[in-house]
Every structure is written in C-alpha cells, then in structure tokens.
Design a protein around this nucleic acid. Structure first.
Length: 466
RNA sequence: GUCCCUAUAGACUAAGGGUUAGGUCACCACCCUUUCAAGGUGGCUGUAGGGGUUCGAAUCCCCUUAGGGACGCCA
C-alpha cells in the first residue's frame, strides 16, 4: 500500500510552503488510494509548542486535508533509543566529546579559510576504551554516525532523476544530543521505515539530508523508500519565501479573506500541471489528475494576483447563502452585525465583485451611515450648486416612485431625458450620495436594497450641504 | 567557500528531437454597460547566453551566466 507522510515540526504556524508539501503528499496518497500520515516532529523541546501543533491541525482541517494516522515523535522516544543501541552495538556510531564551543571554533576557522566545514572526526579516532573512560568521568557527549568515507550515495529521485553525492562530503551526523534526545535525521529514518512510508515527498531543501539518511537506512538494515523532492516556492522577489512575499501562515490567509478552495487550487498549480489547457481544479479533480511525473523541477514564484483571481472565481461558484455565511464574520469583526435578510440582498449584489471575503467591507454603506464622500467625487459632483439643484428635483420626484430596480431605472432614464442630461450625470452623483463612493454595484439595485427611506435621507444630506 | 539543484513571456505552466512554441493569470484594445467587477472577442510579450551532436534542438551533451537549496546538539 502506498503510504506517505507530512512531517511538520511544531515550531511555528503552518505556512503556505508547508501546506503545499502536505497537499502534494495528500494528492498522491488519495490518487493512489494510499495512506496519508501526519507526523509531528517535536524532538526539539525548546522550540516545539502545543499552540503551533494546534495551528497545524487547524490549518490542515481548514484546507480539507484529513490524515489517516497521527504520530508524535515525542511519544516515540523509547523506539529511537532501541535503535540507537542497536547501532552502537554494530559499531556504526561513536561518542563525540567535542563541545559546542570547540565545534564553533572549528567552524569559524573553516570559514576564515574559505573552506567548507565538515566535522573533522576527532572523536571518531578515539579508541573505545578512551571513550568509555571519558564517559565515566562524566564528560557530556553526543552520539555520531560513522558515515562511509569512500564511494558515493545515489538518490533516484522521482522528480529529478539521479542525484549523486560523494560520500566524502557527508559528515558524521549527530544522532543523539547531549541530553540523549535523538535528532531529526535519526528519527525520520526510523519513523519512515517503521511506518512503512513508501514515498517520501518533501521540499527540495531536504535533498542534502537524503544521502545521510540513505546511509542510515543501510546501517539499520531498512528497505529504502522512494524519494521525490518537490521544488520550493519563492517569494515575488525570487528569493526564499518571506513573510512579505507570501509566506504567511495558512490561518493568515483565512483571516485575509481567502477561501480554502482557492488556496488549494493555487498551491497545486505551483510546480505541477494537471492539463495543458486548464487550471481550475477543485480538490477532487486534483486528486484524480495528480501524478509525480507531472511535478516539475524548478522553483515557482508565489503570485498573489493569481491567488486573488482563483479566490474570486471560487467565491462566485458558491450560493448566496454560503457567501453570506462566509462573509458575516468579517463584517462582525468590523463592528457590523448584519440582519440576515439585508445581508443576503447585499451578497446578491456583491457576489460577482468579491475577490476576497474582506472586500465585503467595501459595502459598509448598506449597514452604516455614509459619513464621508470620495474626495475626487465630492469635488466633481457636490461643489456645483446647479448639480445639487438637479439632485434636489430628482429627490423630490423619487418620493413618488416605487423602489424596485427596474422601475427606478425607467424613472431615472426618463428623468434624465426630461432634464436634458445624460444618464451618467445623474447616476454618478446619486451613487456618491448613497454610498459615498464612485464605485458600487448597479445603482438601481443598490437603491432597491437600501430602500426608499434611506435613499431619500442620504440624498437630503447632500442637498443640505448647499 | 564547498556540495547539490534549477533555467520556456511580468507570473504559473504545456510541448521531452520535426507544432505558426499551446493554455491560464496579469496587461492592452474592443464589445456589453450607470461606475467597478464578471462575461465575450481580439492582441502584446517567451525557449538565459555561447558552443557542440543531428538532415532537424526549447527538448540531448558541454561551458558560461543567473537564481535557489544545504553545509546546526533546527526540522
């Protein structure tokens, strides 16, 4: 059975790049009828936090990715211990008594000499007896893995093909810290093997870890899984995704008014294609079409305009009731508690115009008094007493009109004609008076939704500016 | 610095030896129209550069350049 895993460390909120890695794993699992495992890699006690773990759960849930199994590495320490002692017995590891300070010094020295740093193997050369003696003396130590010093390690990557590393480049990685807690490279290998992960799909940033891990597989006698390293996402400045350029937490996208359908579709498109001619694919369709060979090798740049487009598209696919429910929390956050009936009417008008759910705040005027007017619009329409006078007549005549959109349109058009004006000469100032803005949904629909009373009142407010 | 990876328009991608290099977003124009969207029609931009291999190269090879990643008692 095909089994994949997403293995985040709870040292921060789930960000968009992590979500994409999760998505590719999820799509692959579901496409093949396989299993999607979520594994929390919380071996770094200092930085791992429960709140981040919860953020990861919430984000995945929001995106609609459900895991089949859940593990936490912090609950599996005894397993790693077993394998550590197994490796020690087979002489694949050694105790290293070099202190952090000593190592730092060496690193700095290498840097000064413009040479690449690699652990020099000081303690690898230590005799067993000497090592045991040092241990008994109470000197703290870490456990290192003896990397092969010759030959090469080859990754047969499902995305990139063959990647070759000279074993000389591999240094003796630390398996156990001074406090006995195992490190990432050790835990992943054991977990992936024990959880029978068949395909490791992860970011390109892990390529250089892979040969080290392959050596561990070999030393532990585990069967190798398949590897697929997916390209990273770059920010709009072509450098590593930074917060400014899009690397926000998934939950921040939610707060910004994006909907999961759009985020999923957008992320799936970065670094992968599903059709030569189409790009709109909901999750179910992505699952049907996903395939590792379709994943491409180059890093993709995060582009908000496309996300916005997709978000608008998916919003338009929803029913008005659904949109109302989605948009309501954003209004409430802005201090507006909309009545259901009015909200539904507003959504009907705004539906085709929303890119983000937060855009609903552009139509605050349905729920709140208009207190200020667009400055340019004010100059253009409200400064001239002649124009105001026209509005005054319009207002007066509107009193006797039934406020349905079609009816208002007929009335306004004939009013304009009667007064020798173009329709626009009326529509724009009226819009400004009713909404405070130069831009809104169709004016007559807006008027109908606002109702006669409010419309007349707002027109009056402008007339009295005179 | 060392090792590794990558390179099709402003962005995401298709074509994996033979296509007028296709699609999507963005952009521009027009249509629709009371504004903005949405929708419709049309258009603009591209194989990083240089060498090879080949009858033929975006595609295969080499070099250059550019970008990214890794080099932690982080994951």
């Amino acid at each position: 059975m095909i089994t994949v895993r997403f293995a985040p460390s709870p040292t921060g909120n789930l960000h968009i790049g992590g979500a994409r890695t999760a998505l590719f794993n999820y799509l692959f699992a579901k496409h093949t009828g396989g299993k999607f495992i979520l594994r929390i890699e919380d071996t770094d006690k200092e930085r791992s936090k429960k709140e981040y773990e919860e953020n990861i759960f919430a984000s995945l849930k929001w995106l609609g990715m459900h895991h089949d199994e859940l593990y936490r590495q912090s609950e599996r320490m005894h397993i790693y211990k077993d394998y550590a002692s197994k490796l020690a017995k087979s002489e694949n590891t050694y105790k290293c008594f070099c202190t952090r300070e000593e190592l730092d010094k060496k690193r700095q020295l290498f840097e000064k000499m413009k040479r690449s740093y690699k652990y020099d193997g000081t303690c690898r050369k230590l005799s067993r007896a000497k090592g045991d003696k040092l241990k008994e003396s109470g000197k703290p130590f870490v456990v290192r893995f003896k990397m092969p010093e010759e030959g090469e390690t080859i990754i047969n990557d499902l995305v990139r093909g063959k990647i070759t590393f000279d074993n000389k480049e591999l240094d003796d990685i630390i398996l156990e810290r001074t406090d006995g807690v195992p490190t990432y490279n050790f835990c992943v290998v054991i977990d992936d093997a024990l959880m029978k992960i068949t395909h490791i799909i992860r970011g390109e940033d892990h390529i250089s870890n892979t040969p080290r891990q392959i050596q561990l597989y070999k030393a532990l006698g585990f069967e190798l899984p398949e590897f697929a390293h997916i390209p990273l996402i770059l920010g709009s400045d072509k450098t590593r995704l930074s917060k400014r350029a899009g690397a926000a937490a998934v939950t921040e996208y939610e707060d910004d008014g994006y909907i999961p359908e759009a985020v999923i579709n957008f992320l799936a498109l970065l670094g992968c294609s599903y059709s030569p001619t189409e790009e709109i694919f909901p999750l179910g369709e992505l699952i049907k079409r996903f395939n590792l060979p379709h994943v491409n090798k180059s890093a993709a740049i995060f582009d908000f305009t496309k996300l916005d487009y997709l978000n608008g598209y998916y919003i338009r696919q929803k029913t008005e009731a659904e949109i109302a429910a989605l948009v309501r929390p954003f209004l409430i956050k802005a201090g507006i508690t909309p009545g259901e009936e009015l909200l539904l009417k507003v959504v009907k008008l705004e539906k085709g115009r929303l890119k983000k759910l937060t855009d609903i705040l552009d139509s605050k005027y349905f729920f709140k008094e208009v207190k200020e007017y667009d400055t340019a619009g004010f100059e253009k329409y409200f400064k001239d007493p002649v124009k105001i006078a026209l509005l005054e007549i319009y207002r007066k005549e509107a009193e006797g009109v039934s406020f349905e959109a079609t009816n208002l349109e007929v009335f306004t058009k004939s009013f304009a004609e009667k007064n020798g004006k173009k329709l626009g000469e009326l529509v724009h100032p009226v819009r400004l008076a009713l909404t405070g803005k130069l831009i809104s949904p169709g004016l007559f629909e807006v008027m109908e939704t606002l109702g006669k009373e409010l419309c007349l009142k707002r027109l009056e407010a402008v007339i009295s500016l005179k």
